[in-house]
Design a protein around this nucleic acid. Structure first.
Length: 277
DNA sequence: AGCCAGGGTCTGC
DNA sequence: GCAGACCATGGC
């Protein structure tokens, strides 16, 4: 025991029925890299970890020279939503036959709770864009304007850093028309016009309106921020795939079995749609 | 070459 | 409130 008791070399989280790569690459996060052999490198805010599964244990390891602290454990438990019983949820969802079929194609998926500003920037980038290119632009954003966490690994830029830049400064990102939206988001967050603390006090509808004060944030991007960073699990981001899927598989709307967790059901339906529509 | 991508803005009705 | 043009970029 030559390490201080306040940090540890790795962290194991029990995760029953959990598909790690499925969760990381199902279109809710664009901040993970496949290292091969079941190992993944992820960035969240100014944190980074390696992740792999050991049986039913999710093992998170720090990147040298980093260590994992008790605060990191709290952070990553929240990130992977360890407080939600996904086995029980899948059982309830399965009572609807159509939803059960979607579950079959997305077994072990979880909805993450990612940092607010990461999620806001990532889904602004996502508009009218493909997933591989979203990932590439987000990576250039981190590498160009973020701070180095470990050799070659960069965190997301802070709102203040991004707010100090001009649209021309973002040219290396090749984000196209989204550049000006990223700047406006950073300035409104840095100035407090839009704040995560304020969001927490608002209803779903008012929270959506609050986020839509940002130029370039419409209903879909706002909903993604509320679901994927704020844990508002009843919110259903409606993109082109979800519109197709709902029209085809759920013309009557989201089944009652998904009550309160429509956003999580949405993730299974989204995956099913991308495979079958 | 033309179409599309986990959309949003702006304009005109 | 709602339809349609337009928006940068890149892969197919």
């Amino acid at each position: 025991m030559n390490q201080p008791s306040s940090s540890f070399s790795s962290l194991s989280l029990p995760m029953e029925d959990f598909d790690l790569p499925g969760t990381l690459f199902c279109g809710q996060s664009f901040s993970w890299e496949d290292l091969g052999n079941g190992h993944y490198l992820g960035v969240a805010g100014s944190r980074a970890v390696r992740a792999h599964m050991d049986g039913t244990q999710l093992v998170l390891s720090p990147l040298a020279p980093q260590t994992l602290t008790p605060e990191d454990e709290v952070f990553w438990r929240r990130y992977f939503a360890t407080d939600i019983d996904y086995v029980a949820l899948a059982d309830i969802f399965s009572r609807d036959d159509t939803l059960a079929q979607c579950l079959d194609h997305a077994q072990g998926l979880r909805v993450l709770r990612q940092p607010f500003f990461d999620t806001l920037l990532s889904f602004i980038i996502s508009q009218n864009n493909h997933i591989p290119r979203i990932t590439a632009i987000a990576k250039r954003l981190r590498e160009t304007f973020g701070s180095e966490i470990a050799p070659g690994v960069y965190g997301f830029p802070t709102p203040e850093r991004l707010a100090s830049l001009s649209v021309e400064d973002l040219a290396p990102l090749r984000a196209g028309f989204r550049g000006k939206y990223l700047i406006d988001a950073a300035r409104k967050v840095a100035s407090g016009i839009v704040s995560e603390e304020m969001l927490a006090t608002l209803s779903d509808d008012d929270a959506r309106k609050h986020l839509m004060a940002i130029h370039g944030v419409g209903p879909k991007v706002a909903d993604c921020v509320l679901l994927y960073s704020q844990g508002r699990n009843a919110i259903i981001p409606m993109d082109v795939w979800m519109k197709r899927a709902m029209a085809k598989a759920f013309p009557e709307g989201m089944p009652k079995e998904a009550k309160g967790y429509e956003g999580i059901a949405q993730q299974y339906i989204f995956c099913w749609a991308r495979e079958h529509l």
